[in-house]
Amino acid sequence: MAMSKRRRAQMFRYLQYGILLLALVLLIVFANWGQIKRSFFNLDTAAAMFPDVIVVALLNTVIYTVLGFAFGLVLGLILALMKLSSVGPYRWLATIYIEFFRGVPALLVFIAFGFGVPLAFQVRFDIYSTVMLALGLVGAAYMAETIRAGIQAVPKGQVEAARSLGMSQGRAMITIVIPQAFRIILPPLTNELILLTKDSSLIYILGLIGTEYELTKYGRETLSRSPSLTPILIVGLCYLIITLPLGYLSRYLERRTGGRKVPSPEASGLEVSA
């Protein structure tokens, strides 16, 4: 009756393998494999997508993301500095901005920006500027919090050393603190680049024309002219071409910066005696 602890653990492991096997069997038995093959793996449809899916859609996705990321990074840095400001209204404004744009779906921001701004301000941006501003506005809210955390993670002694050498507060921030903050937050920033890559799929709402298609819009358009769902698979793989290397980059940077922090007396003391 009473099983040993080791025996129980073994039984539990068998049970886990059993559930996995059962799930696979159910999937194989009940899925319509012929239909799946016809729907997702239509080679003719796939072949017809090249080279446009790469030279237009993938390229546009990268361009939109990079533009949005660049603008978001600058705005995010400004918001982070506002959040750390000693001037109350700056802090409040930054907090309101961050809470608002983090709490609202990106799609709504794009609609409001794409259609609202031309109406309200009588200005018309080209598609690249629109995408850059719209994606950047959303990305900045996330990046601001990351950058603020990075700035606060730089030891206070760094500022004191800079100030005692005669640097002004601003000079110390630009020359000493911000470069070190960005080293610290490189891994999370890479993650935000991945999120932004996926968010760029939502800009279809702005109304794109053929040469402006990014991956998702391109996939949907091809889908409407195709009897199979193959475009969705191809487009999905294209996203992975972008995001997987970024994911690896992020983990690599995390490993690298994890081992080499700003030198502290304790750390260097240990290194010496080792």
Binding site: P155, Q158, E160, A161, S164, I176, Q180, V262, P263
Partner: peptide, 10 residues
């Protein structure tokens, strides 16, 4: 100024 914790720019 020289600090206890060095404070070299990392």
């Amino acid at each position: 100024m020289v600090f206890q914790s060095f404070n070299l720019f990392g």
